[in-house]
Structure formats: C-alpha cells, structure tokens
Amino acid sequence: MARELSKIIDNWVPRESKVIDFGCGDGSLLQKLMQTKNVLGYGVEINDSKIEECIAKGVPVIKQDIDKGINEFESSNFDLSIMARSIQCLKNPNLALERMLNLSKRCVVTLPNLGYWRCRLNLASGRMPVTPELPSSWYETKNIHLCTIKDFEQLCIDQNIKIKDKVFLNSNGHSGILASISPNLFAIEGVYLLEKQ
C-alpha cells in the first residue's frame, strides 16, 4: 500500500484499538498498525499466498470471501474496520458499507475515482478507461462497481453515513492541491473515514 495512504489511515486509528481489515492483502498495513499503535488487528483475505504472508508476519488473518461474510463479525465489537481499494470489487458495496458500520464504530474506505480526468478522456474517446490505477481491460477487471467521488458521497448521504474525514490523493499518491480543490476531476483515489449518522 502506498506510503501516503497508509499514513492517512494510521492517523485515524486510535491507539490500542481493535481493527479489522477487509481485503488485508499481505497484512503490511495491520503489521504497521500493530507496531505503531499497538492495535489488536485481524485481516480478512481470500488469497492463499497473501494469507501465508500474514501468518509469517504474525498478523492474525481469517480466510474469507468478503463478498460473503462481513456480518459474521458483528458480535466482535471492533473499533474500526478498514476496506482499502476493495469496495468496488464487491457485489453489493452499499450493503458492505452498512455491515462494516454495524460491526465497528467507524470505518475507513478507500476507492479509485472513475471521475478522474484521465478516465473521462478515455470515455470521451469512446473507450473504457485503462489507467495506471485501473490497469485491467473491461472484460477482466475485478472492479465491477466503479464510481466517482461524487457518486460515493451521494451514496453516503443516501445511506445516512457521516463522512467524518476525507483525503484525496493525486496521481503521485499525495494529497495535492488540485485533488483537494476539485477531487472529482483530479483525485485518483478518495480516502474516507466514515461513521453512522
């Protein structure tokens, strides 16, 4: 995970909190949070080699398809749930959001912005966007529910979700000026801290 993104998330994670990271990958974000914030972290991952890496790092991990079982963790009292760069891959992103906020007080969601100017240029030329951030062709992409920054924030309003904080990243992975002035056009990624209204 890009350093900037991991830094932003780090800022939002309370010390010694209980955190669940959906789509945790190789567990490096959780490992860092365990070291810097002494969190009790659990990763959820479906990829077997990534799971091995988590275990090698000493990061607790659960093999689970996040499309199927987010609500299984509702009894566990998490302080924070994280879903970085995965929500657009889910069958029901809106349900996932709702469930994450059912099992934790807050959640961090990051997502690629389809409104980014490069994507718009692609579409204007009549083709589906293929960019460094969204490198796959339409027929093989896992991103089945892409949206723009505006779309996502509208969903939050519709679902009564409060955006507690947000940061927009530009193509260098930094929170640049243009990206914060006009995120829907210049941000490649939105990073959100959400809680229930």
């Binding site: 659990y42 607790p60 009894s75």
Partner: peptide
Amino acid sequence: INNNIKSSYVVL
C-alpha cells in the same frame, strides 16, 4: 475474536 484473542483461521 470476540475475546480479543490473536487467532487465525485458514481453510485449505
């Protein structure tokens, strides 16, 4: 997890 135990669950 409910008891804050460090634990991993893997299916092979």
